[in-house]
Write a protein that binds this DNA or RNA. Structure first.
Length: 230
DNA sequence: TGATGATCATGC
DNA sequence: GCATGATCATCA
């Protein structure tokens, strides 16, 4: 909405570049957990606090007024994304929604990517150069096609669903454990229990984002590069 | 090494 | 209880 607002957020985010999670935690006055395995979302929560994002578990973008979603992006030493990226939970009745009105499109329309080096002790993980991003028309077409395929899959019954569907988007379990069930509906509309799932961006997508921004090498054997410079 | 399915903590 | 923040564990 506001270009000035975007520039301010981006400048603030880029000021975190080169710092460690421990430094940022001290800056915002929060303790950083020692064990990432037991605090998987801690880096993302910390960055949101440092940026003054709206926070909480509400729907909608992190910066509601600007429509910006903040996503930390775990990368290896060369700046390549090492994990897929959670986008949002599968909404009930997603079959009734168009791509244009989908939460996936809303989330991905404007993303502030924050690369973070992984495979180091939590507090020593270094933050990279923040990147304000929107999907290219080509990627958006892929996302739309995936969304429509996956929505159809969801509407046709839960049995056939796996993470193998979708070129850029995929469906994966999203729950405390595999036993969790939500109230849903079967293809006929009758009440049924379903495993909660989320939409995820495949790893190649975020790798491409960083490559196009010059933050990661394009070739598999490319030279090492500092992720907090470009 | 990469992808899939499973899992952990927190906030409301 | 469920959505948000993600990474872990395992197998091919």
């Amino acid at each position: 909405v506001s270009a000035a607002g975007e520039r301010e957020i981006l400048a603030l985010a880029r000021s975190l570049g080169g710092r460690t999670l421990g430094e940022v935690a001290r800056f915002v006055g929060r303790a950083l957990p020692r064990d990432p395995a037991r605090h998987k979302g801690a880096a993302g929560t910390l960055i949101e606090r440092a940026l003054g994002a709206d926070g909480g578990s509400r729907h909608g973008p992190d910066f509601a007024a600007l429509g910006i979603e903040v996503k930390t992006l775990p990368v290896d030493a060369r700046g390549r994304a090492v994990e897929s990226t959670f986008v949002c939970c599968v909404p009930q009745r997603s079959k009734d929604e168009s791509w244009e009105r989908s939460p996936v499109r809303a989330k991905l329309a404007r993303v502030l990517w924050i690369p973070i080096e992984t495979h180091a002790p939590f507090a020593e993980r270094r933050i990279g150069s923040a990147l304000l991003w929107s999907p290219s028309p080509a990627l958006e077409e892929t996302l739309r096609a995936d969304w429509e395929d996956l929505a159809e899959l969801l509407a046709s019954g839960a049995e056939r669903i796996s993470a193998r569907h979708g070129r850029a988007l995929q469906l994966r379990p999203k729950a405390h454990d595999a036993s969790v069930r939500l109230r849903g509906a079967d293809p006929d509309g009758a009440p049924a229990l379903e495993a909660p799932r989320g939409f995820y961006l495949r790893r190649w997508v975020t790798r491409q984002v960083l490559e196009e921004a010059g933050l990661a090498p394009r070739a598999a054997r490319g030279a090492a590069r500092c992720i907090w410079r470009s």
